[in-house]
Amino acid sequence: MGQLGYFSIGSLDGFIADPSGDFSWAEPDEEVHQYANDQLLGVDLHLYGRRTYELMTVWETDLSFAAANRLYAEFAERWVDADKIVYSSTLEEPVTRRTRLERTFDPEAVRALKDSTPGDLMIAGPTLAGQALRAGLVDVVDQVLLPIVIGGGLPMYPAGLRLDLELMDERRFAGGAVAVRHRVVGPAQATRSTAG
């Protein structure tokens, strides 16, 4: 039985892209990239929404990009070797191997995947991860927080979500980034608005 982990790299104030959709500021340095590569060890299945999947396809479809350096090549090899599911009502067909298209996100089907997948599962992209978090499917949340505040944009977590977490591990990087890994210990809850 595999665990489902949500991995993200974002700003200290909790965003993965700025209001214009730019995330070039989040490009990892070598040390953080190696950490991201290591997170793929033991992952047998990746879950993506359409936008995140389309960003990730470069690891298989652009061989010159994937071969640009040792870290890229290592990440590409691990990514290509894992199975992938992309959830989209508009994507015509996947462009990568070992990829299945699902039209809707079905929490019960994902629960069955967790039971049947020998290794771990990883979900990426805050929109799809938000659905999995709300459904109580995510076991581990792994974030790399970069030393930048961008003030708004695409948040790592959906608004109104509360999660009870237990710190499992933390790591500081020379460039100022911090990785924190938490176990989800309580069911997702909707927060109440205090606005009057």
Rank of each mutant, 00 (worst) to 15 (best):
G152H: 11
D22C: 12
R70K: 14
D142E: 12
V184T: 08
I85C: 03
W25F: 15
E31L: 10
F105S: 10
L145M: 14
L133A: 13
V178M: 11
R192T: 09
S11W: 12
E102L: 12
D169E: 14
R70I: 03
A66T: 02
H182P: 00
A112C: 00
S20Q: 14
G130T: 11
T90F: 05
G153I: 06
R70V: 10
Y48S: 05
D142H: 12
S88I: 10
R78K: 15
G21I: 05
L71H: 14
L154V: 14
A76L: 07
S24L: 11
Q3F: 10
T191R: 15
M156C: 10
L167V: 12
K114Q: 10
P155I: 02
R172D: 12
Y48F: 15
S116K: 13
R103H: 13
V185F: 02
V138L: 11
M56I: 00
T117W: 06
G42A: 07
P107V: 08
F7E: 05
A66E: 08
P94D: 04
S64M: 12
I85P: 03
K114T: 02
L4W: 04
R171G: 12
V149L: 09
H33Q: 15
A177M: 05
V149I: 15
S8V: 14
A188Q: 03
V178I: 14
G151C: 13
Q131P: 00
D139R: 09
L91N: 02
W25A: 09
D142R: 08
V43M: 07
T104I: 09
E30W: 06
G14W: 04
G176V: 13
V95W: 01
V32A: 07
D29K: 04
G152L: 03
V141W: 05
L4Q: 01
A109N: 10
V86F: 02
V180Q: 14
L133C: 12
A36I: 13
E170T: 14
L4C: 04
R192A: 10
R50D: 05
F173D: 04
V149Y: 11
V43W: 05
M156S: 14
D44A: 09
G186Y: 02
R103M: 03
L63G: 01
G10Y: 08
R111I: 00
A67D: 15
S116L: 09
V110E: 13
Q131E: 13
A68T: 12
R103P: 03
D169G: 09
E166P: 01
M1Y: 09
P187T: 09
L167N: 02
G5C: 01
Q189P: 01
A36P: 00
S8A: 14
R162H: 09
Q143E: 13
A135W: 05
I16Q: 02
D81N: 14
I148K: 07
T61G: 06
P126K: 01
L161F: 11
I85G: 01
F173T: 06
T61A: 05
E31A: 15
G14F: 11
Q39A: 08
V178G: 00
L47S: 08
P126Q: 07
R51K: 15
S193P: 01
R78T: 03
Y48N: 07
P94A: 06
V178W: 01
F105M: 10
F23D: 07
I150M: 09
A177N: 02
F105E: 05
A135M: 07
F75V: 01
L154I: 06
